[in-house]
Computed example of a mutant assay.
Amino acid sequence: MITMTVNGKVRKGLAEPRLLLTDFIRHELGLTGTNVGCEHGACGACTIRVNGQIVRSCIMLAVQADGAEVETVEGIAVNGEFSPLQEAFHEEHGLQCGFCTPGMLMTAQVLLDKNPDPTEAEIRDHMSGNICRCTGYQGIINSVRCAARKLQQNSTADPATNGSAR
């Protein structure tokens, strides 16, 4: 039995020693937003945060996350509403089939948390570990830039938001 805090809620489940974190999240916890793509950590579809660090959950064992704070794409929404980042992906056509989108959102969120006003080059560099086979990436880049603008507008309108991407 392992225990972790997932998107702010304490969750428990059974995990065999070799069970991957993606499989634990999807099958044991029922959070299917985290996708399994390459199963080698190369595509980024399974990107989540563990203790604030971005990780590829397809190459991490579930038991390694015992006691950890885990954030998945399901935790990005704010009070059941799209976050500014999710709104921007919708508005700027940052997704097509949607398979890579959870990993893209998690990766972009980390960037915006660290750098609320990234340049296009910084966005491209940060997002370069995530593969999308549909969009050609320009919509994704535009989405991250749009989200940065939204977050800046929100932080000047409401200092309590502190520029957070969530």
Rank of each mutant, 00 (worst) to 15 (best):
A121L: 09
R26C: 11
A62D: 06
V73W: 11
N79M: 12
R11C: 14
N35F: 00
A88Q: 02
T161M: 06
E92P: 00
Q153P: 00
I141F: 14
L111T: 07
P17A: 02
V6C: 13
L29G: 09
T72F: 04
D23Q: 13
G94K: 08
I25A: 09
A65V: 07
A121M: 06
H27S: 03
E92N: 08
A45V: 03
T3E: 15
E91V: 12
G163Q: 11
G75H: 12
T135H: 02
A15H: 10
I54Q: 08
M106A: 06
R18E: 10
A108W: 02
E16N: 07
K9P: 00
N35R: 14
I76M: 13
P118H: 09
C100T: 09
M127P: 02
R26K: 12
L61S: 04
E28Y: 00
R49V: 00
A68M: 09
Q153T: 12
T34D: 04
C134D: 05
N79C: 08
L19V: 07
T5Q: 14
L21D: 05
A15D: 07
L21M: 08
H27R: 13
F89P: 06
D125M: 12
V10R: 14
L61H: 11
E71H: 12
I141W: 03
M1W: 04
I76Q: 13
A88C: 10
E16F: 06
R26N: 11
M60E: 10
E122S: 02
G44L: 01
E16Q: 13
G129D: 10
G33E: 09
A148V: 12
G94W: 05
S128C: 12
A15E: 05
A165H: 04
I140Q: 01
Y137D: 09
D113W: 01
Q153C: 00
A88Y: 03
G44M: 01
G52S: 10
Q86G: 04
M127W: 13
E91Y: 04
N154F: 00
Q53D: 10
N79W: 02
P118W: 08
T47Q: 06
A147T: 02
S164R: 15
T72M: 05
V144P: 06
C58R: 05
V63K: 14
Y137H: 09
R26D: 08
M4E: 01
H126D: 03
C132F: 05
F82K: 11
P116H: 11
T3C: 05
S57L: 11
G41P: 02
Q152R: 14
C58I: 03
R56Y: 10
I2R: 12
E81H: 15
L31C: 03
Q53P: 00
I141M: 06
Q86N: 08
R145T: 14
D23L: 04
A160F: 04
I131E: 01
T72Y: 09
L21Q: 10
M60T: 11
M60I: 12
T107A: 05
M4F: 14
V63Q: 14
S83W: 10
P116K: 09
K114M: 11
E87D: 15
E87P: 00
K9V: 15
M4L: 15
N51D: 15
M1N: 08
P84D: 10
N130W: 13
T156N: 01
V55M: 13
I54C: 07
C134T: 02
F89I: 06
I2S: 07
G41Q: 07
G136E: 04
V10A: 13
V36Q: 03
A62F: 04
A157L: 13
